[in-house]
Deep mutational scan, measured.
Amino acid sequence: AQVHVDGVTYDFDNPEEAEKFAREMAKRKGGTVEVKNDQWHVE
């Protein structure tokens, strides 16, 4: 699973880890999390 944050792509073998990371980053940035094509996007 991939997580996109500020133009940087992070690869995770485990989708749950990807989701956890995406939500944590969004919380830190005060942003939102979107899922597109099985990829997490932190805005």
Rank of each mutant, 00 (worst) to 15 (best):
A1N: 13
A1G: 08
Q2L: 10
Q2N: 04
Q2A: 08
Q2W: 08
Q2E: 04
V3P: 00
V3T: 02
V3H: 00
V3Y: 00
V3L: 03
H4I: 15
H4W: 13
H4T: 13
H4Y: 12
V5K: 02
V5P: 01
V5F: 12
V5Y: 12
V5Q: 01
V5M: 12
D6L: 05
D6R: 03
D6A: 06
G7K: 02
G7S: 03
G7H: 04
G7P: 00
G7W: 02
G7R: 01
G7M: 01
V8N: 07
V8E: 08
T9Q: 09
T9P: 05
T9S: 07
T9F: 07
Y10K: 02
Y10H: 04
Y10P: 03
D11P: 08
D11G: 05
D11W: 15
D11Y: 15
F12K: 00
F12R: 00
F12G: 01
F12Y: 01
F12I: 01
D13E: 11
D13H: 04
D13F: 03
N14Y: 05
N14R: 03
N14A: 05
N14Q: 04
P15E: 11
P15F: 12
E16Q: 09
E16D: 11
E16Y: 10
E17T: 04
E17R: 00
E17N: 03
E17M: 06
A18T: 00
A18G: 00
A18P: 00
A18L: 02
A18D: 02
A18E: 02
A18S: 01
E19Q: 02
E19V: 00
E19D: 08
E19Y: 05
E19R: 01
E19T: 00
E19N: 02
K20M: 07
K20S: 09
K20V: 04
F21A: 04
F21S: 02
F21V: 03
F21T: 01
F21D: 03
F21W: 07
A22C: 13
A22R: 05
A22E: 09
A22I: 06
A22L: 11
R23N: 14
R23L: 11
R23H: 13
E24N: 03
E24P: 00
E24G: 02
M25Q: 11
M25R: 01
M25E: 12
M25F: 02
M25V: 12
A26L: 02
A26W: 00
K27V: 09
K27P: 02
K27Q: 12
K27G: 08
K27N: 09
K27D: 12
K27H: 07
R28A: 14
R28Q: 14
R28L: 15
R28H: 11
R28K: 14
K29L: 15
K29W: 14
G30L: 07
G30R: 07
G30S: 08
G30E: 06
G30Y: 07
G30M: 08
G31K: 07
G31E: 07
G31P: 03
G31W: 09
G31S: 10
G31A: 10
G31Y: 12
T32H: 11
T32R: 13
T32V: 12
T32F: 11
V33M: 07
V33G: 04
V33I: 10
V33Q: 04
E34G: 09
E34A: 13
E34F: 14
E34M: 14
E34N: 13
E34T: 15
V35G: 10
V35A: 06
V35H: 12
V35K: 14
V35Q: 11
V35W: 14
V35P: 04
K36E: 10
K36V: 13
N37D: 12
N37P: 06
N37M: 10
N37E: 09
N37W: 07
D38P: 07
D38V: 03
D38E: 10
D38K: 10
Q39E: 09
Q39R: 09
Q39D: 08
Q39N: 10
Q39Y: 07
Q39T: 10
W40E: 06
W40N: 05
W40G: 03
W40A: 06
W40Q: 07
W40P: 07
H41Y: 15
H41N: 06
H41F: 15
H41Q: 08
H41D: 06
V42E: 06
V42R: 05
V42P: 05
V42G: 04
V42T: 07
V42S: 05
V42Y: 06
E43D: 10
E43L: 15
E43Y: 14
E43K: 14
E43G: 12
E43I: 15
